[in-house]
Amino acid sequence: MDDLTDPTPSRDESELAIEGALRPGSLADFVGQMKVRGQLQLLLDAARLQQRPADHILLAGPPGLGKTTLAMIVAHESDRPLRMSSGPAIQHAGDLAALLSSLTPGEVLFIDEIHRMARSAEEMLYLAMEDFRIDIMVGKGAGATSIPLDLAPFTLVGATTRAGLLPNPLRDRFGFTAHLEYYEPEELERVLERSARMLEVPLPAGSRAEIARRSRGTPRIANRLLRRVRDYVVVHGGSATEESVDAALDLYDVDVIGLDRLDRAVLDALVRRFHGGPVGLNTLAVTVGEEADTIESVIEPYLVRIGFMGRTPRGRVATPDAYAHLGVRHADQSLRFDDL
């Protein structure tokens, strides 16, 4: 899939450095998520006044909405160091034990995709979050002994794109759960205004609005599209006018509502090959030559959100709006769309 909408693309160091530079450093600079910002500010202020580590925080929401940035802000505004890891990297209880035992007092531990941790590590984390202690097993069989190990008090910030996969005992140990929402176009324009200023790219209001409209409600995508527009202007000269934005994003197969090549391939298969569905997820994935997990976690949520696709017990279906977007005449379907 094109890296403009992939939540986990491969990126070189320069790209990471640019993305890091565009991250806001404080809650005051963070655009959008007003309710979550207010809740986090209260939590951090209370911890500071009581001179204790902040409660554990769970950040839940789709990719690209600012979970990693908020974790960095929590550490910065708490004036504490930040340790970063990820769920897939913690596949054994020993991995987690080594990580927790090396934390300094008050340190902020950020675990991205926390729902992908190994079950044995999750169970160890319960005790660590609640009592700042872990039990390490020494030996095997009947002679095995449990040795308690005290930990320095810390704040865990977990991020997940699939909160429903977290076991209840783990979810309940977070003192605060923030649910991040997709951004409105006006908020994305503010994100783009700040990013364009930092990248030294003059970006008129009309161009900001056009990029925001194609950014799928996601700041990460908005910033990537802005960088592609910048590249186009650097190579072809001129300025970031609406015409330049159109030309740059057309080159990268991003259409007027943010659909890319794979999005349209899924819709096209659903509408033309399967006459609007219903069709099973695996069949649809094979048809477009993509993994089913990618269709389900990356492509499908946006198509469902904008009303182009529906999920039914019989499979995925295309809505009349999808037909209209592809310019295909909508034939009568056996499935009633009011059952979606």
Rank of each mutant, 00 (worst) to 15 (best):
residue 4 L to W: 04
residue 4 L to P: 11
residue 6 D to W: 09
residue 11 R to N: 08
residue 14 S to Q: 14
residue 15 E to N: 09
residue 15 E to F: 15
residue 17 A to Q: 14
residue 17 A to K: 11
residue 22 L to C: 05
residue 24 P to D: 13
residue 26 S to H: 01
residue 26 S to I: 08
residue 27 L to W: 12
residue 30 F to G: 08
residue 35 K to C: 06
residue 37 R to A: 15
residue 37 R to M: 15
residue 42 L to C: 09
residue 44 L to K: 01
residue 44 L to A: 04
residue 44 L to D: 00
residue 45 D to F: 02
residue 46 A to W: 09
residue 52 R to Y: 06
residue 56 H to G: 08
residue 65 L to Q: 02
residue 67 K to R: 03
residue 69 T to R: 07
residue 70 L to S: 02
residue 70 L to V: 05
residue 93 A to K: 06
residue 98 A to Y: 09
residue 101 S to Q: 01
residue 107 E to M: 09
residue 115 H to P: 15
residue 115 H to A: 13
residue 116 R to L: 14
residue 122 E to Q: 13
residue 125 L to C: 09
residue 129 M to C: 12
residue 130 E to V: 12
residue 130 E to S: 15
residue 130 E to W: 12
residue 130 E to N: 15
residue 131 D to V: 12
residue 143 G to P: 10
residue 143 G to R: 10
residue 148 P to R: 05
residue 152 A to H: 08
residue 166 L to F: 08
residue 173 R to N: 15
residue 176 F to K: 05
residue 178 A to H: 15
residue 180 L to K: 11
residue 181 E to S: 13
residue 186 E to P: 07
residue 189 E to R: 15
residue 191 V to A: 09
residue 196 A to P: 10
residue 199 L to V: 11
residue 204 P to I: 09
residue 208 R to V: 07
residue 212 A to R: 04
residue 216 R to D: 05
residue 220 R to S: 00
residue 221 I to S: 00
residue 223 N to V: 08
residue 224 R to Q: 01
residue 225 L to R: 06
residue 227 R to C: 05
residue 229 V to F: 12
residue 241 T to S: 15
residue 245 V to N: 10
residue 250 D to R: 10
residue 250 D to Y: 10
residue 252 Y to F: 14
residue 254 V to H: 00
residue 259 L to C: 05
residue 263 D to R: 03
residue 267 L to Y: 01
residue 268 D to F: 02
residue 272 R to C: 06
residue 275 H to K: 14
residue 279 V to D: 05
residue 289 G to F: 01
residue 290 E to M: 01
residue 295 I to Y: 03
residue 299 I to W: 00
residue 306 I to V: 05
residue 307 G to V: 03
residue 310 G to Q: 00
residue 319 T to C: 02
residue 319 T to Y: 02
residue 322 A to N: 01
residue 323 Y to S: 06
residue 325 H to Q: 05
residue 328 V to D: 01
residue 333 Q to C: 06
residue 334 S to H: 13
residue 336 R to D: 14
